[in-house]
Amino acid sequence: MDGWLLSLTVAVGLVVAAPFIGGILSGIDRKLTARMQNRVGPPIIQPFYDLLKLWGKESFVASRFQALLAFSFMVFSVVAFTLLVLAQDLLLIVFVISLADVCLVLGSYCGRSPYSYLGGRRELLQMLAYEPILILAVVNIYAATGSFMVEGVFKLGFPLVILLPGVFLALLIALPIEARKSPFDISASHHAHQEIVRGVFTEFSGFSLALIEFGHWFKLIFYLALLALFWVPLLWLGAVLAFIFYFIIMIVDNIFPRLTWTFMLKAVWLAGFTLAVSNLIVLALLGVGLAWA
């Protein structure tokens, strides 16, 4: 009973802490970017001020469904992260994440806006790029641990990354897509790019935009937690490494241009896919995974 209570407390704690960490990361990102551009930049906690301000603004919508879909995006991002900290089924979590993304795309199509439409299309292509990688990553984790549950990773006893270095790399390649960073920030960018304006986010404003920003923090932390999972039982090391990778991505974001969607699709598929599949084949050939042992 005690163990059960403890893990629940930890889970609730993590879910509550996630948006704060996400917000601060986003603040650091802005500060870092500003410094690299020789600006002073906003305070680290500026994202929270922004969120509060958006929250209180008068609500404008492009269609009745738009707000609902923004809300759904936020809810399912939170649900995915919650399932992760509750050590649930990884495959299900991947499906819930893609549900959240579909909600965002549908929201961007509400209202007949050219920029939002363009962003929605590109967001779909991004999903096409990383969804197979995520599914294959989960299958790899199953092959290594003999379980689709997050629990299995904890029971393994040594870091997953020893068995799955290819998968870890594949996820690193796909991370800039989820974080909306260059070179893969094609559906929406943090920087000013006139040809898509704000992409998928163009038509969201006020409260809806606040919901989306909030959900995005959750998704970011979810992704970093997924990377950290590869280092269990050295979870602290995993967490530190995940943050370091995120900082590298921030720097790459500032020195790299954004590339076309065709490049993204090819790069992520060729590199990520090959890495994930060959890792699976190697596991099977060596017979080291717990699933097929």
Binding site: V61, A62, S63, F65, S98, V102, V105, L106, S108, Y109, C110, G111, R112, S113, Y117, G120, R121, L124, L125, M127, L128, E131
Partner: peptide, 16 residues
């Protein structure tokens, strides 16, 4: 996922 969601999106795409 791609072909269903783009069809769903298309149904929602109307002037505000």
């Amino acid at each position: 996922t791609l072909f269903w969601s783009k069809w769903m999106a298309h149904l929602l795409f109307h002037p505000s």
